[in-house]
Nucleic acid binder design. Structure first.
Lengths: 218, 218
DNA sequence: TCCTATTGGAGAGTGGCACTATCCAAACAT
DNA sequence: ATGTTTGGATAGTGCCACTCTCCAATAGGA
């Protein structure tokens, strides 16, 4: 199909598709002549993934490029591709402000991982984007005066672990390596808003249950 | 204290504080003379909260204003303030693309809430930002061809409920209504990155456990 | 008292990001 | 033959979160 049809079928303006092509989010089509290119269903699916990552998942264009590039990097094996891809996902701002809180938060997180027995995480964790994100958030909570000791974080870690198990079960449903890779990225990113929305709805529900007719979000 | 000292103690440039004052994120100081104002510790705490919401929580300035305005709206009672505040939190983009998927996702979500017995949520849910966010995310997953039937979402809803219980327990630790209001907003927003980071770390850990030495994020 | 520095307020300017509009020449359709 | 369509390049737009510059009114020291 031509670019115009790709646009029609995806609902995305041609100008935007051209932009994605330029930015390397979408591999170039098969060149038919000097001025025309042919796209297929794989392009359409990729385009939908890109759009979902950017618009629903809130992933910046630059990060999306890194993620998608990693997924099809032939020089890496399955696990390395996945690792590189997830590594490139957005991980919040640089830790700003008081170093004291950062450092204390780092120790708290380390203690948490130790208590949970997540030792493989502790080994390389100091460099992981997710770890940095966690430390930054804990530091921000501490700076505001909110509790975020190990015992306060533990319930969230438990929930996180349950979620991870569910995620991996979902990913295991796919047979081919390529499908698993795309699924891992898509599910990691796109279940984030699902989870956050469900948490807010549950807060309203639970608040209603505890405090009566007027609920949290009524 | 003067604006300069507020800046020094918070680590935020005076220009930015002036901007927050202009945008109504920070109440004006007590005017001492025509050209000077006095700020107190409440301003400092509010400033830290604003900064955390915006930088760590990723809340847009306009949403933060709505949230904070609701918290101190004297014309509302406790629950209404909280409801208005949480309502104003960011809730993703407008649902774009195929209406068919949106509608189908809406039915799935409704079925999920019914199965969970979250009836108070169903009553007003159609208008809730969190509900809209959930439907949009489910629609995006469906459009990509990923499973998001009721039974697929249920584990995430269960996790969401556990989290909500933990959240409300945490909020109940505070005695005064004002503290509870601020805590509700701060904890709702700032535990989001905590949770997402823990999920990613847990994914790496669980992947390592299942598939051997090379973990998801190694 | 005079002089300099500082303060808070207002408006314009900046940089980053995700597009989006305009051009253009080659190719296609008729 | 000729008007339309295509894909690529370039420049421009709108939004957002600041950030800079200026200014008159002070505050504080000589």
């Amino acid at each position: 199909m031509r670019l115009a049809e790709l646009s029609r079928r995806s609902g995305i303006p041609t100008a935007t598709i051209k932009y994605y092509l330029r930015e390397g989010l979408l591999p170039p089509g098969r060149r038919v002549t000097a001025t025309q290119a042919e796209y297929d269903d794989a392009h359409l699916q990729r385009l939908r993934l890109v759009r979902a990552l950017i618009q629903v998942g809130g992933v910046p264009v630059a990060s999306a490029r890194e993620v998608l590039t990693a997924l099809e990097d032939d020089s890496l094996d399955h696990n390395s591709r996945l690792g590189t891809a997830v590594w490139a996902l957005p991980h919040g701002p640089e830790p700003s402000g008081d170093e004291v809180f950062q450092e204390r938060a780092g120790r708290t997180v380390d203690a948490l991982l130790a208590r949970l027995g997540w030792d493989s995480a502790r080994e390389y964790a100091a460099e992981s984007p997710a770890h940095r994100m966690l430390v930054t958030a804990v530091a921000a909570l501490a700076r505001l005066g909110y509790p975020c000791a190990v015992e306060d974080l533990a319930p969230y870690a438990r929930a996180g672990h349950q979620l991870a198990v569910t995620d991996l079960d979902l990913i295991e449903r796919y047979d081919s390596a390529d499908e698993q890779l795309e699924a891992a990225v898509a599910l990691t990113v796109l279940y984030e808003p699902v989870l956050l929305a469900l948490r807010r709805i549950a807060q309203a529900q639970e608040s209603h249950r505890r405090y009566g007719q007027r609920s949290t979000e009524e």
